[in-house]
Simulated assay, not measured.
Amino acid sequence: MDSRYLGIAELVEAPSVAVVVDVMRAFTVAAWAFAQGAEAIVLAESLDEALAHKARHPDWVALKDGPPAPGFDTVNSPGLLRSVDLGGRTVVQKTTAGTVGALAVKEASLVLCAGFVVAEATARLLRTRGCASVTFVVTGEDGQADEDLACAQYIARRVAGAGTDADEFLRRAAASRATAELAEGVRQGAHPDDVALCLELDRFPFAMVAAWEDPLMVLRPCPVPPPTDEAST
Protein backbone atom coordinates (compact mmCIF):
# COMPACT_ATOMS: atom_id res chain seq x y z
CA MET A 1 0.00 0.00 0.00
CA ASP A 2 1.25 3.45 -0.93
CA SER A 3 0.95 5.71 2.13
CA ARG A 4 1.20 9.49 2.36
CA TYR A 5 1.26 11.49 5.58
CA LEU A 6 -0.03 15.04 5.27
CA GLY A 7 -1.12 17.84 7.55
CA ILE A 8 -4.47 19.49 6.95
CA ALA A 9 -2.91 22.50 5.23
CA GLU A 10 -1.06 20.20 2.81
CA LEU A 11 -4.26 18.74 1.38
CA VAL A 12 -4.40 20.36 -2.04
CA GLU A 13 -6.84 17.86 -3.54
CA ALA A 14 -9.23 15.24 -2.25
CA PRO A 15 -7.53 11.86 -1.88
CA SER A 16 -9.31 8.68 -2.90
CA VAL A 17 -8.94 7.14 0.55
CA ALA A 18 -8.20 9.15 3.67
CA VAL A 19 -7.54 8.12 7.26
CA VAL A 20 -7.89 11.12 9.54
CA VAL A 21 -5.94 10.60 12.75
CA ASP A 22 -6.53 12.46 16.00
CA VAL A 23 -5.30 10.50 19.00
CA MET A 24 -5.46 13.30 21.61
CA ARG A 25 -8.47 13.35 21.70
CA ALA A 26 -11.15 13.75 19.05
CA PHE A 27 -11.33 10.27 17.61
CA THR A 28 -10.60 8.52 20.88
CA VAL A 29 -13.64 10.42 22.15
CA ALA A 30 -15.65 9.44 19.06
CA ALA A 31 -14.86 5.76 19.62
CA TRP A 32 -15.92 6.03 23.26
CA ALA A 33 -19.14 7.75 22.18
CA PHE A 34 -20.01 4.77 19.99
CA ALA A 35 -19.06 2.37 22.77
CA GLN A 36 -21.45 4.27 25.02
CA GLY A 37 -24.26 3.70 22.52
CA ALA A 38 -24.18 6.73 20.22
CA GLU A 39 -25.81 6.06 16.86
CA ALA A 40 -23.99 8.73 14.86
CA ILE A 41 -21.63 11.66 15.26
CA VAL A 42 -22.19 14.84 13.26
CA LEU A 43 -18.89 16.61 12.59
CA ALA A 44 -19.53 20.34 12.86
CA GLU A 45 -17.51 23.01 11.06
CA SER A 46 -17.79 25.57 13.84
CA LEU A 47 -18.98 26.05 17.39
CA ASP A 48 -21.89 28.10 16.09
CA GLU A 49 -22.90 25.29 13.76
CA ALA A 50 -22.72 22.78 16.60
CA LEU A 51 -24.96 24.99 18.74
CA ALA A 52 -27.37 25.44 15.84
CA HIS A 53 -27.66 21.65 15.48
CA LYS A 54 -28.28 21.40 19.21
CA ALA A 55 -30.97 24.09 19.04
CA ARG A 56 -32.78 22.21 16.25
CA HIS A 57 -32.32 18.84 17.93
CA PRO A 58 -32.41 19.28 21.73
CA ASP A 59 -31.96 15.55 22.24
CA TRP A 60 -28.56 15.59 20.47
CA VAL A 61 -25.42 15.70 22.61
CA ALA A 62 -23.05 18.55 21.76
CA LEU A 63 -19.39 18.43 22.74
CA LYS A 64 -16.36 20.64 22.13
CA ASP A 65 -12.70 21.13 23.00
CA GLY A 66 -11.69 23.08 26.07
CA PRO A 67 -13.68 23.90 29.19
CA PRO A 68 -17.45 23.51 29.53
CA ALA A 69 -19.47 26.18 27.74
CA PRO A 70 -23.13 27.22 27.60
CA GLY A 71 -25.14 25.15 25.14
CA PHE A 72 -22.71 22.22 25.14
CA ASP A 73 -23.46 19.05 27.04
CA THR A 74 -19.91 17.87 27.61
CA VAL A 75 -16.31 18.29 26.50
CA ASN A 76 -13.85 16.41 24.33
CA SER A 77 -12.61 14.01 27.00
CA PRO A 78 -12.78 10.21 26.85
CA GLY A 79 -12.40 10.03 30.62
CA LEU A 80 -15.52 12.13 31.10
CA LEU A 81 -17.52 10.64 28.24
CA ARG A 82 -17.11 7.02 29.35
CA SER A 83 -19.64 7.58 32.13
CA VAL A 84 -22.30 9.11 29.83
CA ASP A 85 -25.14 6.95 28.52
CA LEU A 86 -25.50 7.80 24.82
CA GLY A 87 -27.80 4.93 23.86
CA GLY A 88 -29.38 5.67 20.46
CA ARG A 89 -28.42 9.33 20.51
CA THR A 90 -26.66 11.55 17.99
CA VAL A 91 -23.55 13.44 19.06
CA VAL A 92 -22.41 16.74 17.56
CA GLN A 93 -18.64 17.11 17.77
CA LYS A 94 -16.48 20.16 17.09
CA THR A 95 -12.78 20.04 17.86
CA THR A 96 -9.72 22.05 16.99
CA ALA A 97 -8.08 19.51 14.69
CA GLY A 98 -9.87 16.18 14.25
CA THR A 99 -13.20 17.37 12.93
CA VAL A 100 -11.42 19.96 10.78
CA GLY A 101 -9.32 17.22 9.19
CA ALA A 102 -12.31 15.03 8.45
CA LEU A 103 -14.20 17.88 6.82
CA ALA A 104 -11.13 18.74 4.74
CA VAL A 105 -11.34 15.36 2.98
CA LYS A 106 -15.11 15.05 2.75
CA GLU A 107 -14.90 14.55 -1.03
CA ALA A 108 -12.80 11.38 -0.68
CA SER A 109 -14.46 8.12 -1.67
CA LEU A 110 -13.61 6.62 1.73
CA VAL A 111 -12.91 8.57 4.93
CA LEU A 112 -11.91 6.78 8.10
CA CYS A 113 -11.32 8.50 11.43
CA ALA A 114 -8.88 6.82 13.77
CA GLY A 115 -6.80 6.71 16.91
CA PHE A 116 -4.96 3.91 18.66
CA VAL A 117 -8.19 2.62 20.20
CA VAL A 118 -9.44 1.52 16.75
CA ALA A 119 -6.09 1.01 14.99
CA GLU A 120 -6.38 -2.68 14.16
CA ALA A 121 -10.00 -2.42 13.04
CA THR A 122 -9.06 0.50 10.81
CA ALA A 123 -6.19 -1.47 9.29
CA ARG A 124 -8.41 -4.48 8.69
CA LEU A 125 -11.02 -2.37 6.93
CA LEU A 126 -8.39 -0.85 4.65
CA ARG A 127 -7.05 -4.32 3.95
CA THR A 128 -10.52 -5.71 3.29
CA ARG A 129 -11.28 -2.87 0.87
CA GLY A 130 -8.00 -3.52 -0.97
CA CYS A 131 -6.92 0.11 -0.73
CA ALA A 132 -3.78 0.56 -2.82
CA SER A 133 -3.16 4.20 -1.86
CA VAL A 134 -4.06 5.89 1.41
CA THR A 135 -3.55 9.45 2.61
CA PHE A 136 -3.15 9.69 6.37
CA VAL A 137 -4.16 13.12 7.64
CA VAL A 138 -2.02 14.04 10.65
CA THR A 139 -4.34 16.56 12.25
CA GLY A 140 -2.48 17.83 15.30
CA GLU A 141 0.08 20.66 15.42
CA ASP A 142 -0.18 21.52 11.72
CA GLY A 143 0.74 17.98 10.76
CA GLN A 144 3.62 17.67 13.22
CA ALA A 145 1.87 15.88 16.09
CA ASP A 146 3.96 12.79 16.71
CA GLU A 147 1.16 10.90 18.47
CA ASP A 148 -0.94 11.20 15.30
CA LEU A 149 1.94 10.36 12.97
CA ALA A 150 2.94 7.37 15.09
CA CYS A 151 -0.62 6.05 15.02
CA ALA A 152 -0.87 6.59 11.26
CA GLN A 153 2.41 4.77 10.63
CA TYR A 154 1.36 1.92 12.88
CA ILE A 155 -1.94 1.50 11.01
CA ALA A 156 -0.09 1.53 7.68
CA ARG A 157 2.22 -1.22 8.92
CA ARG A 158 -0.73 -3.28 10.09
CA VAL A 159 -2.46 -2.93 6.72
CA ALA A 160 0.49 -4.77 5.24
CA GLY A 161 -0.28 -7.61 7.65
CA ALA A 162 3.28 -7.67 8.91
CA GLY A 163 4.09 -8.49 12.50
CA THR A 164 4.46 -5.07 14.07
CA ASP A 165 5.51 -4.23 17.59
CA ALA A 166 3.16 -1.48 18.72
CA ASP A 167 5.34 -0.51 21.67
CA GLU A 168 7.65 1.82 19.76
CA PHE A 169 4.69 3.70 18.28
CA LEU A 170 2.95 3.98 21.64
CA ARG A 171 6.20 5.21 23.23
CA ARG A 172 6.41 7.97 20.64
CA ALA A 173 2.84 8.97 21.34
CA ALA A 174 3.45 8.91 25.09
CA ALA A 175 6.41 11.26 24.64
CA SER A 176 4.51 13.73 22.47
CA ARG A 177 3.75 17.34 23.22
CA ALA A 178 0.01 16.66 23.37
CA THR A 179 0.52 13.96 25.98
CA ALA A 180 2.62 16.32 28.09
CA GLU A 181 0.04 19.08 27.84
CA LEU A 182 -2.75 16.75 28.91
CA ALA A 183 -0.73 15.27 31.75
CA GLU A 184 0.33 18.72 33.00
CA GLY A 185 -3.17 20.18 32.85
CA VAL A 186 -2.36 22.64 30.08
CA ARG A 187 -5.36 21.50 28.04
CA GLN A 188 -8.66 22.32 29.65
CA GLY A 189 -11.71 20.08 29.71
CA ALA A 190 -9.67 17.00 30.56
CA HIS A 191 -9.84 14.01 32.90
CA PRO A 192 -6.80 12.49 34.62
CA ASP A 193 -7.35 9.24 32.71
CA ASP A 194 -7.44 10.85 29.25
CA VAL A 195 -3.82 10.07 28.35
CA ALA A 196 -4.10 6.41 29.30
CA LEU A 197 -7.38 6.05 27.44
CA CYS A 198 -5.95 7.66 24.30
CA LEU A 199 -2.96 5.30 24.35
CA GLU A 200 -5.04 2.14 24.82
CA LEU A 201 -4.40 -0.03 21.78
CA ASP A 202 -7.34 -1.67 20.01
CA ARG A 203 -9.86 -1.08 22.77
CA PHE A 204 -12.74 -1.25 20.29
CA PRO A 205 -13.48 -3.76 17.49
CA PHE A 206 -14.95 -1.29 14.99
CA ALA A 207 -13.59 1.20 12.49
CA MET A 208 -15.20 4.63 12.07
CA VAL A 209 -16.36 5.79 8.65
CA ALA A 210 -17.27 9.39 7.88
CA ALA A 211 -19.52 10.10 4.93
CA TRP A 212 -21.32 13.09 3.49
CA GLU A 213 -25.00 12.73 4.28
CA ASP A 214 -26.14 15.97 2.71
CA PRO A 215 -25.94 18.47 4.33
CA LEU A 216 -23.91 16.85 7.12
CA MET A 217 -20.62 15.00 7.52
CA VAL A 218 -21.57 12.02 9.67
CA LEU A 219 -19.32 9.54 11.43
CA ARG A 220 -20.58 6.02 12.11
CA PRO A 221 -19.05 2.83 13.52
CA CYS A 222 -18.31 0.11 11.01
CA PRO A 223 -17.90 -3.51 12.10
CA VAL A 224 -15.01 -5.28 10.35
CA PRO A 225 -14.39 -8.97 9.71
CA PRO A 226 -12.19 -10.76 12.23
CA PRO A 227 -8.57 -11.08 11.16
CA THR A 228 -7.40 -14.16 9.30
CA ASP A 229 -4.41 -16.07 10.56
CA GLU A 230 -2.26 -14.48 7.88
CA ALA A 231 -3.33 -10.92 8.64
CA SER A 232 -3.04 -11.22 12.41
CA THR A 233 0.58 -12.34 12.56
Rank of each mutant, 00 (worst) to 15 (best):
T96F: 05
V195Y: 04
V118K: 00
E141I: 11
A178R: 03
Y154W: 12
S77V: 04
R129I: 02
R89Q: 02
V137H: 04
R171L: 12
L201V: 08
P192R: 11
R203D: 00
D142F: 11
A145M: 09
A121W: 01
P78V: 03
F116R: 03
A160F: 07
L201G: 04
G87H: 00
R187L: 13
R171F: 14
E181D: 15
E200V: 03
L80E: 09
R89K: 11
V105E: 11
T135F: 02
S109R: 14
A121R: 02
A175W: 09
T128E: 14
D165H: 11
V186T: 15
V105K: 09
V75K: 02
E141K: 08
A190G: 15
N76W: 06
V111D: 02
A178P: 11
P192C: 09
F169S: 07
E181Q: 14
Y154T: 08
V137Y: 04
T139V: 05
R127T: 08
V84T: 05
L126K: 06
R124H: 04
D167N: 14
S109C: 13
L149N: 09
E120W: 08
A162K: 12
M208S: 00
A97S: 14
L112C: 05
A102P: 03
C113N: 00
H191V: 07
